[in-house]
Write a protein that binds this DNA or RNA. Structure first.
Length: 622
RNA sequence: CGGGGUGUAGCUUAGCCUGGUAGAGCGCCUGGUUUGGGACCAGGAGGUCGCAGGUUCGAAUCCUGUCGCCCCGACCA
């Protein structure tokens, strides 16, 4: 046994020896006398907290700190303590395995990027605000020989030039690359611990294909790898159709871990299998066979002094229900105004304006609206002939749902005047119908018409089919077998590893602490030694720990000179899946106790069977 | 960046309104009694009250500025 050399330890060691027979060992390795990775709690570093830090709002954030996984350095900046790092490493390893299984190849790109890689790119505008600058001058004022740098928020702008230079033939396609590493984004508002941090760990991947079919295959392979990853780490993640946002690209899925604290709404129906995030969600509110109502009468103006809201027009004396009103909104797309018509009861989903193809879209100001339509917001409408300067508009777009209104009420484009008996097809000047409204829970899903449900979720992964947006920009392509040149068809993919860590806690905890899924637990077995000063108990604990380790578990031995209550509380808090309690009381009965975290009952197992049973228990999980 | 809040010991905080020697619990150290779900007793260490100005005989407390942090909004893995 390795403990024999303990006489060489200092005075403190001898003092501790009095209460802990493991105390002379630097770590588990020495008392087993062979190579082992198990840790002794008394020698490890797990600073648990009884109370929550004041700045932690949500359960997972509190538990991250209380269980000793992380400590905050500053807003959105966290140190991963040993326990947190162990989970991160397990998540990374599983992610790596699934990515490699899908055919992707690991590499590593710099975190510091020369700014010119971004300055010419398609995303410099929208992405610039969240990038940290890393000028070599350090003060933002660079000298003539000091280039500008940024800290990488993602790596499309780096990998595309690389692949452009290194891959020139169709014979080398397809290729997918990935890396797992730190990303930097100067979030406007970091919050919820690791959930939205300034520095975070992400797996990012990029696929390059010869044509669109290949890109779809790469995309689907990646989707399968994601599903395998989330399954293996014990997360209940769902994939939803998503908006492509600033990334651009043609289609995309988000992977969500459902949780109340998520900042995304998803709409879904389990029976039909439809699921989408709110920005993208569609509904079958307007049936395919919908027939518009015939016009009910002639257009008629009526005075509405001071009435500028949907709600005011609903109230007496007007009494026009919101779903019988038309709401006309004006936006500026790439500098030119356009209008959107919705039902009064609907909300615009701004993300859906992306389908109109503008680069930059923002709401128009009243000053911009009045010269074009003829009135201020509150009395706007899209009735043919009422607009002051219709040629200034790019067009008037309408949500499909306004066809359900039939004859309704809308602004007359004169302040304080509205029109009634407005018939969609007869009276409105619509350039194009589209899907612009925000879908609500309860509406029929677009597949089978079943009611959509809504819940919140945490976005932990995102996959995009990018197309040729980036390759076109820098002319990155290859030569085919007919000596013709084509652009790479790209995809890009990301999994927030550190965010997933916290989302797992959010998804799996109780009042006592974290409940780790087996595959990612920092330690899978905790041998809770209640009497570390008792050589017989310590010997039993050591054998059980060794058996668990043989079976493939990561083992922690709680050998601290603490009272049992403290050890049990800490054990529950850090969420180790399997706890084995070894104490004098049990030993007298000839048993040790086995308890699965999250299960209510404690199992007593006979001492002489304990090693075999623990080994079997571990193997059943691995 | 807009709105709101907050800063007192390692952590959680009282005191601030109504200025007058900075208090508690947890944790930590020492001794003792305990020992199967966050023990008890006794003793002890630890705070220039975020920072800088101002008002005042006197400021944790009132005023101004500034910085950090937290929450709500837009954005994201």
């Amino acid at each position: 046994m390795g403990g024999r050399s303990c006489g060489e330890e200092g005075q403190i060691e001898r003092r501790r020896l009095a209460t802990n027979v493991f105390a002379c060992c630097h770590r588990g390795a020495s008392f087993l006398g062979c190579l082992t990775l198990m840790q002794l709690w008394s020698r490890y570093f797990i600073p648990t907290l009884k109370e929550s830090p004041a700045d932690a709002e949500i359960a997972s954030h509190r538990l991250l700190v209380r269980a000793g996984l992380v400590r905050k350095l500053g807003g959105g900046l966290y140190t991963y303590l040993p326990l947190g790092l162990r989970v991160m490493q397990k998540l990374s390893r599983i992610c790596r395995e699934e990515m490699e299984r899908s055919g992707a190849i690991e590499l590593q790109m710099p975190h510091i990027h020369p700014a010119e890689f971004w300055a010419d790119g398609p995303r410099w505008g929208p992405v610039r605000e969240i990038m940290f600058r890393a000028d070599s001058a350090g003060d933002g004022k660079r000298g003539p020989r000091e280039p500008e740098f940024v800290l990488g928020p993602t790596h499309e702008e780096v990998i595309t030039p690389l692949v452009k230079h290194e891959i020139t033939s169709y014979r080398d396609l397809p290729k997918s690359f990935f890396q797992i590493g730190t990303k930097f984004r100067n979030e406007i508002r970091p919050r919820y611990g690791l959930m939205r941090a300034r520095e975070f760990v992400m797996m990012d991947a990029y696929s390059f294909d010869a044509d669109d079919d290949g890109a779809v295959r790469s995309y689907l392979a990646m989707k399968a790898a994601y599903e395998a990853f989330f399954r293996r780490i014990g997360a209940e993640a769902v994939s939803v159709e998503a908006d492509t946002g600033v990334m651009g690209g043609s289609f995309s899925h988000e992977f969500m871990i459902p949780a109340e604290v998520g900042d995304d709404d998803l709409l879904y129906n389990e029976e039909s299998g439809y699921s989408a995030n709110r920005e993208k969600a569609r509904s079958a509110l307007v049936p395919a066979d919908h027939v518009d109502l015939p016009a009910a009468g002639a257009l008629e103006e009526f005075p509405t002094p001071g009435i500028v809201t949907i709600a005011a027009l609903e109230a007496p004396p007007y009494g026009v229900p919101a779903d019988r009103q038309f709401k006309t909104l004006v936006y500026i797309g790439d500098g030119r105004p356009f209008a959107i018509v919705l039902r009064g009861c609907d909300e615009l989903e701004e993300a859906k304006l992306g389908s109109l193809g503008f680069g930059l879209v923002r709401p128009a100001t009243p000053e911009e609206i009045e010269p074009v339509l003829g009135a201020k917001p509150g009395s706007l409408g899209a009735v043919r002939g009422t607009l002051r300067n219709p040629s200034a508009l790019v067009g008037i777009y309408a949500d499909h749902a306004i066809r359900l209104v039939g004859n309704g009420t809308t602004g007359a484009n004169r302040d304080g005047v509205h029109l009634r008996n407005v018939n969609v097809m007869r009276d409105l000047e619509i350039k194009e119908f589209g899907d612009f409204r925000r879908v609500r829970a309860g509406e029929p899903d677009p597949i089978g018409g079943r009611p959509l449900k809504m819940r919140r979720g945490i976005e932990v992964g995102h996959i995009f089919k990018l197309g040729t947006k980036y390759s076109e920009r820098i002319d990155a392509g290859y030569t085919d077998d007919k000596k013709e040149r084509h652009l790479f068809v790209m995809g890009c993919y990301g999994i927030g590893i550190s965010r997933t860590l916290q989302a797992l806690i959010e998804q799996s905890h109780d009042n006592d602490g974290i409940i780790w899924p087996w595959a990612v637990a920092p330690f899978q077995v905790l041998v809770c030694l209640l009497d570390p000063q008792d050589p017989q108990a310590a010997e039993i604990a050591r054998r059980i720990a060794a058996a668990a380790e043989r079976a493939g578990a990561d083992v922690l031995i709680d050998d601290r000179a603490e009272r049992p209550g403290v050890k049990f509380k800490d054990s529950d808090l850090i969420g180790v899946p399997l706890r084995v309690t070894v104490g004098g009381r049990g030993i007298k009965e000839g048993v040790v106790e086995m308890k699965w975290r999250g299960a209510p009952e404690t199992l007593k197992i006979a001492l002489d069977e304990s090693e075999a049973l623990i080994e079997a228990a571990v193997r059943s999980k691995a």
